[in-house]
Amino acid sequence: MAVYQIVEIGDPVLREKAKPVKEVTPHILKLLDNMADTMYAAKGVGLAAPQIGVSKRVIVVDVGEGLVELINPEIVEASGQAVDTEGCLSVPGMIGEVARADKLIVKGLNRQGKEVVYQAKGFMARALQHEIDHLEGIIFVDKASNLRKAE
């Protein structure tokens, strides 16, 4: 178990397009484990590898329905729209309203290197989009309106 320091806004790694994972190696498995430990320790619902300074296309999400680990995630389909308040572990103390698709189909690889497909809606769809944005160098403040300090 390892808990990493979360990289904050201003660090250039957060603005890079993360590199695809070519194969699931023991290093990637350890990265997934450490990302989950870091996310839970920070009381977050999602974490992307760039948020711990690793420019790889790896995310973990847990909105209370169990841990989802995705390597090279891609949004296959998005529909509907909802606006809700978001925050980010890399932008501590700030929240804002972000419009996102309400329903998603996301595909990626699991820790066994097998392709998996998730259908998500609501909060889970929002969390997946937020983390996948990190892999593109996009931070929620880029899309947020009514940006303000969290109370």
Score class of each variant (00 low, 15 high):
L47N: 11
A42C: 11
P50I: 15
Q51I: 05
D33M: 04
V61P: 06
P73A: 03
D62K: 04
I71F: 08
M39H: 11
N34E: 15
V58L: 06
V45N: 05
N72T: 04
G64R: 09
L32F: 03
E69L: 01
V68G: 07
T38K: 04
K56A: 15
M39D: 13
S55M: 12
A36S: 09
I71R: 07
A48Y: 02
P50S: 13
V58Y: 01
G53K: 10
G53L: 06
P50A: 14
D37Y: 03
A49N: 03
L32I: 14
Q51C: 07
L47T: 06
P50M: 13
V63L: 08
G66D: 13
A36H: 09
I52D: 11
V45S: 06
L67C: 06
A48Q: 01
L70R: 08
A48E: 00
I71H: 06
L67D: 05
G44K: 12
L70D: 08
V61K: 05
E69V: 10
V68Y: 08
D62F: 00
L70P: 02
M35F: 04
I59K: 00
P50T: 15
V54S: 11
G44E: 13
A41G: 00
E74G: 02
D37Q: 11
L70I: 14
D37K: 11
A41W: 00
K56G: 06
P73W: 03
L47H: 10
G53H: 08
R57D: 02
D33W: 00
A41S: 11
Y40S: 09
A41P: 00
D37C: 03
I71Y: 10
P73S: 07
S55D: 12
L70G: 09
E69A: 05
Q51W: 05
R57A: 05
G53R: 08
V63F: 08
G46D: 10
V54M: 14
V68S: 05
V54T: 15
N72G: 07
V45Y: 03
L32G: 02
E65F: 07
Q51F: 01
E65R: 15
A49M: 05
G53S: 12
K43D: 09
L70Q: 07
Q51N: 06
V45L: 08
V63M: 12
I71S: 10
G64M: 09
G44S: 14
V61Y: 07
G44R: 14
M39W: 12
Y40D: 11
L70E: 05
D33C: 00
